[in-house]
Amino acid sequence: MAEDKTKIQEDTRKILVKWKTKRGSLIMALHEIQGAFGYVPWDAMEVVAEELKIPMAQIYSVLTFYNYFKLTAPGKVVISICDGTACHIKGGQSVIEAFEKELGVPAGTTTEDGLFYIQIVRCLGCCGLAPVVVVNGKTYGRVTPLDAPKIVAEWRETMAKEGV
Protein backbone atom coordinates (compact mmCIF):
# COMPACT_ATOMS: atom_id res chain seq x y z
CA MET A 1 0.00 0.00 0.00
CA ALA A 2 2.70 2.45 1.05
CA GLU A 3 4.56 1.70 -2.15
CA ASP A 4 1.39 2.32 -4.11
CA LYS A 5 1.03 5.68 -2.52
CA THR A 6 4.56 6.72 -3.37
CA LYS A 7 4.15 5.61 -6.95
CA ILE A 8 0.81 7.38 -7.34
CA GLN A 9 2.22 10.54 -5.88
CA GLU A 10 5.33 10.43 -8.01
CA ASP A 11 3.36 9.88 -11.21
CA THR A 12 0.96 12.63 -10.26
CA ARG A 13 3.79 15.04 -9.66
CA LYS A 14 5.07 14.33 -13.15
CA ILE A 15 1.64 14.90 -14.66
CA LEU A 16 1.32 18.20 -12.88
CA VAL A 17 4.54 19.70 -14.16
CA LYS A 18 2.94 21.15 -17.24
CA TRP A 19 -0.23 22.27 -15.47
CA LYS A 20 1.43 24.15 -12.66
CA THR A 21 2.04 27.24 -14.67
CA LYS A 22 -1.34 27.35 -16.38
CA ARG A 23 -4.53 28.99 -15.32
CA GLY A 24 -7.63 26.99 -14.54
CA SER A 25 -5.84 23.72 -14.95
CA LEU A 26 -7.50 21.70 -12.20
CA ILE A 27 -9.97 19.86 -14.39
CA MET A 28 -7.39 19.18 -17.08
CA ALA A 29 -5.01 17.82 -14.48
CA LEU A 30 -7.73 15.59 -13.06
CA HIS A 31 -8.49 14.28 -16.55
CA GLU A 32 -4.89 13.30 -16.97
CA ILE A 33 -4.71 11.72 -13.54
CA GLN A 34 -7.81 9.66 -14.24
CA GLY A 35 -6.28 8.73 -17.57
CA ALA A 36 -3.26 7.38 -15.74
CA PHE A 37 -4.95 5.52 -12.91
CA GLY A 38 -8.48 4.88 -14.16
CA TYR A 39 -9.80 6.99 -11.31
CA VAL A 40 -8.64 9.85 -9.14
CA PRO A 41 -7.04 8.46 -5.98
CA TRP A 42 -6.98 10.45 -2.75
CA ASP A 43 -3.21 10.18 -2.72
CA ALA A 44 -3.11 11.93 -6.08
CA MET A 45 -5.46 14.62 -4.83
CA GLU A 46 -3.05 15.36 -2.02
CA VAL A 47 -0.35 16.09 -4.55
CA VAL A 48 -2.71 18.21 -6.64
CA ALA A 49 -3.58 20.24 -3.56
CA GLU A 50 0.07 20.80 -2.83
CA GLU A 51 1.37 21.45 -6.32
CA LEU A 52 -1.48 23.49 -7.74
CA LYS A 53 -2.15 25.17 -4.38
CA ILE A 54 -5.81 24.27 -4.47
CA PRO A 55 -7.57 23.32 -1.25
CA MET A 56 -8.68 19.72 -0.99
CA ALA A 57 -12.22 20.93 -0.40
CA GLN A 58 -12.27 22.43 -3.86
CA ILE A 59 -10.68 19.46 -5.54
CA TYR A 60 -13.17 17.11 -3.97
CA SER A 61 -16.07 19.41 -4.62
CA VAL A 62 -15.11 19.64 -8.29
CA LEU A 63 -14.56 15.90 -8.58
CA THR A 64 -17.98 15.05 -7.23
CA PHE A 65 -19.65 17.66 -9.41
CA TYR A 66 -18.57 16.18 -12.73
CA ASN A 67 -19.92 12.83 -13.82
CA TYR A 68 -16.78 11.99 -15.70
CA PHE A 69 -14.58 11.58 -12.66
CA LYS A 70 -14.37 8.40 -10.64
CA LEU A 71 -13.27 8.22 -7.04
CA THR A 72 -12.73 4.49 -6.99
CA ALA A 73 -11.09 2.18 -9.44
CA PRO A 74 -13.61 0.89 -11.99
CA GLY A 75 -13.59 -2.64 -13.36
CA LYS A 76 -11.08 -3.60 -16.00
CA VAL A 77 -13.76 -3.69 -18.67
CA VAL A 78 -15.79 -0.53 -18.80
CA ILE A 79 -19.14 -0.94 -20.51
CA SER A 80 -20.60 2.44 -21.44
CA ILE A 81 -24.21 2.21 -22.48
CA CYS A 82 -25.74 5.20 -24.17
CA ASP A 83 -28.99 6.57 -22.84
CA GLY A 84 -29.02 9.70 -24.94
CA THR A 85 -32.30 10.58 -26.57
CA ALA A 86 -31.69 8.79 -29.84
CA CYS A 87 -30.57 5.64 -28.11
CA HIS A 88 -33.33 5.90 -25.52
CA ILE A 89 -36.01 6.12 -28.18
CA LYS A 90 -34.57 3.08 -29.84
CA GLY A 91 -34.65 1.03 -26.68
CA GLY A 92 -31.48 1.97 -24.83
CA GLN A 93 -33.11 1.31 -21.47
CA SER A 94 -33.76 -2.31 -22.26
CA VAL A 95 -30.12 -2.67 -23.30
CA ILE A 96 -29.07 -1.25 -19.94
CA GLU A 97 -31.34 -3.69 -18.17
CA ALA A 98 -29.99 -6.58 -20.19
CA PHE A 99 -26.43 -5.78 -19.17
CA GLU A 100 -27.42 -5.28 -15.56
CA LYS A 101 -29.12 -8.64 -15.60
CA GLU A 102 -26.26 -10.34 -17.36
CA LEU A 103 -23.69 -9.03 -14.87
CA GLY A 104 -25.93 -8.99 -11.84
CA VAL A 105 -25.00 -5.47 -10.76
CA PRO A 106 -26.73 -2.13 -11.25
CA ALA A 107 -25.27 0.52 -13.54
CA GLY A 108 -22.66 2.69 -11.89
CA THR A 109 -21.06 -0.24 -10.11
CA THR A 110 -18.39 -2.85 -10.66
CA THR A 111 -18.93 -6.60 -10.58
CA GLU A 112 -17.62 -8.39 -7.54
CA ASP A 113 -14.71 -9.92 -9.40
CA GLY A 114 -13.68 -6.39 -10.37
CA LEU A 115 -13.87 -7.27 -14.05
CA PHE A 116 -16.82 -5.30 -15.39
CA TYR A 117 -18.01 -1.80 -14.71
CA ILE A 118 -21.28 -0.56 -16.23
CA GLN A 119 -21.86 3.10 -16.76
CA ILE A 120 -24.64 5.01 -18.40
CA VAL A 121 -23.59 7.81 -20.71
CA ARG A 122 -25.57 10.44 -22.52
CA CYS A 123 -24.86 10.43 -26.23
CA LEU A 124 -21.62 9.23 -27.64
CA GLY A 125 -22.02 11.20 -30.84
CA CYS A 126 -22.93 8.21 -32.98
CA CYS A 127 -26.68 8.42 -32.70
CA GLY A 128 -26.93 7.08 -36.21
CA LEU A 129 -26.03 3.68 -34.76
CA ALA A 130 -28.43 3.88 -31.82
CA PRO A 131 -28.60 2.13 -29.42
CA VAL A 132 -24.89 2.30 -28.86
CA VAL A 133 -22.63 0.51 -26.40
CA VAL A 134 -18.92 1.14 -26.07
CA VAL A 135 -16.72 -1.39 -24.32
CA ASN A 136 -13.16 -0.31 -23.54
CA GLY A 137 -13.19 1.91 -26.60
CA LYS A 138 -14.82 -0.61 -28.97
CA THR A 139 -18.17 0.54 -30.31
CA TYR A 140 -21.18 -1.70 -30.80
CA GLY A 141 -24.05 -0.21 -32.79
CA ARG A 142 -27.74 -1.13 -33.02
CA VAL A 143 -27.41 -3.21 -29.90
CA THR A 144 -30.37 -5.27 -28.77
CA PRO A 145 -30.90 -6.80 -25.33
CA LEU A 146 -29.99 -10.14 -26.85
CA ASP A 147 -26.51 -8.86 -27.66
CA ALA A 148 -25.66 -8.24 -24.02
CA PRO A 149 -24.69 -11.84 -23.14
CA LYS A 150 -22.67 -12.09 -26.35
CA ILE A 151 -20.73 -8.92 -25.70
CA VAL A 152 -20.03 -9.90 -22.12
CA ALA A 153 -18.87 -13.35 -23.21
CA GLU A 154 -16.61 -11.82 -25.84
CA TRP A 155 -14.92 -9.64 -23.26
CA ARG A 156 -14.61 -12.41 -20.73
CA GLU A 157 -12.71 -14.32 -23.35
CA THR A 158 -10.54 -11.36 -24.30
CA MET A 159 -9.64 -10.75 -20.69
CA ALA A 160 -8.96 -14.42 -20.09
CA LYS A 161 -6.59 -14.40 -23.05
CA GLU A 162 -4.80 -11.42 -21.61
CA GLY A 163 -4.50 -13.38 -18.42
CA VAL A 164 -6.54 -11.01 -16.30
Binding site: D83, G84, T85, A86, C87, H88, R122, C123, G125, C127
Partner: peptide, 9 residues
Protein backbone atom coordinates in the same frame (compact mmCIF):
# COMPACT_ATOMS: atom_id res chain seq x y z
CA UNK B 1 -24.61 18.40 -23.89
CA UNK B 2 -27.98 17.83 -25.55
CA UNK B 3 -28.25 14.05 -25.55
CA UNK B 4 -28.94 13.05 -29.11
CA UNK B 5 -27.30 15.96 -30.84
CA UNK B 6 -23.84 15.80 -32.33
CA UNK B 7 -23.60 18.65 -34.81
CA UNK B 8 -20.82 20.46 -33.01
CA UNK B 9 -18.88 17.27 -32.54
Amino acid sequence: GDPGAYMDS
